[in-house]
Computed example of a mutant assay.
Amino acid sequence: MALRRADTIAQLNEVLHVAQRDGQRVACVPTMGALHAGHTSLLDRARAECDVVVATLFVNPLQFDRADDLAKYPRNANTDLAICERHGTDVLFSPTPEVMYPGPKKVTVDVTPLEGCLCGATRPGHFRGVATVVTKLLNIVAPQRAYFGEKDFQQLVIIATMARELNLDVEIVGCETVRDDDGLALSSRNALLDPVQRAVAPLLATVLRDASAAVAAGERDASKLIAEARTTLNSEPQFESDYVEVVDPATLEPVSTITGTVRIAAAAYLGSARLTDNVAASPLG
C-alpha cells in the first residue's frame, strides 16, 4: 500500500479496517518526529517482520517538564513524511494534541516504581507522560508488535513492563541503538549541538564503552566504574554530567557488585542539549 496519512483516530480506523479484518500483522513505531537513522532502523525491522507498518508522529506535551524544552524540540513534518515513504511505511498517524487529549486529563498511567531513577530522577512526570501516550497509541493502533530503541533503555523497560502488567495484547520489540561513525548515539536532540559541541559529544559513548570493557576485564565494583566515568566526563569543560549509573537491566535497580549482566547508563548536558546513552556490560567467564 502507498503511504497514507491519518490525522484523526477515525481516519486511522478507516485506513486500518481492511488489515484488521484480514488478520494482517500490524506494526507500530511510535516517534516524536525529527526522524533519523535510529528511527528508520525501527521502520525497516517492522517492515521486514509485519504486513502493515504504522508510524506515529506526535510530540507529546505530557512528557515535557518544561515549556521551553517542548517549544525547542526539533520538528520537520515534511522531511519525516518523506523518510517514512522511503522506508516502506504504510500509514503515518500524526494527531494533534487536541486529538490525543480532547478534554481535561483525568487518567494517566503511573509507573512510579520504575520512573524515579536515571532520567526520571530529574524529570518528574516524564515517564508518566510517556506511559500514558504509549498506552493510548497502542490502544488506538492495536498493533501486534511495537518497536522501540534501546537508546532510551529506561523507556523501553517501562513500556515493556507496562504492556505486560496491563495485559496489552502487543509484543514490545527492543532494537539495538544506532550510532554515528564516531560512536555518538543517534538522537533528535543531536540537532541542537553546534559544531564544537558535536565534536566532543562522542565522549559520552566512549566513557560507557570503557566502563563496559572494564567489567569484561574483571571490574566488579560499580561505584569505581561510576567515579571513573564521571571524572572523565567532567574533564571536558563543555560537559555537565547528570548521572552515571549501573543498574539491573530488568528492574533498573542500582547494582553495587557486578555478578551478571548490567546496564551502564549515563546522561549529560552539552550546551542546551541533554544527551543520554547506555550500554550492556557482562563479566567474562
Rank of each mutant, 00 (worst) to 15 (best):
L203H: 03
E165R: 11
T135M: 14
E150G: 10
Y101E: 08
T96C: 00
P95F: 03
L114P: 01
E85N: 04
P74S: 03
D80Y: 05
Q155A: 07
L192T: 00
I158K: 01
G149E: 11
L203R: 09
F93A: 02
P74V: 09
P124F: 14
R123N: 12
V133G: 13
L204M: 10
A201C: 06
R198P: 10
G174M: 11
Y101K: 06
T89V: 14
R164Q: 11
V170Y: 04
G129M: 12
T108A: 07
D80Q: 05
F148I: 06
N76Q: 06
V134W: 09
G174Q: 07
L137G: 09
S187Y: 04
V133K: 12
A146F: 08
L118G: 13
T122C: 02
L208T: 05
R209F: 02
A211D: 12
D194Y: 10
H126K: 07
L156A: 07
A121L: 07
R198Y: 10
I83Y: 03
V207C: 14
Y73R: 01
V107A: 04
P97T: 10
G116H: 13
K72R: 13
S187A: 09
I172C: 13
P102E: 11
A211R: 08
R86M: 05
R75K: 09
T132P: 03
L166C: 08
E85W: 03
D152C: 14
D180T: 15
Y147P: 04
F148Y: 10
T161C: 00
S187G: 09
G103H: 00
P124H: 08
A142F: 00
T112N: 04
L168Y: 08
K72M: 02
E171K: 13
L186V: 02
N78F: 01
I83L: 15
Y101P: 08
G103K: 02
A211L: 05
S212W: 04
C84P: 00
V91N: 04
A146H: 05
C117H: 15
R123K: 13
P104G: 13
L203E: 09
C175D: 13
F93R: 01
P95A: 13
A82N: 06
A199F: 11
C119G: 05
S188D: 15
A71S: 14
K151C: 03
G125D: 07
L166E: 05
V109D: 03
V133L: 14
A163E: 05
E150C: 09
A142K: 03
V170L: 10
G174S: 08
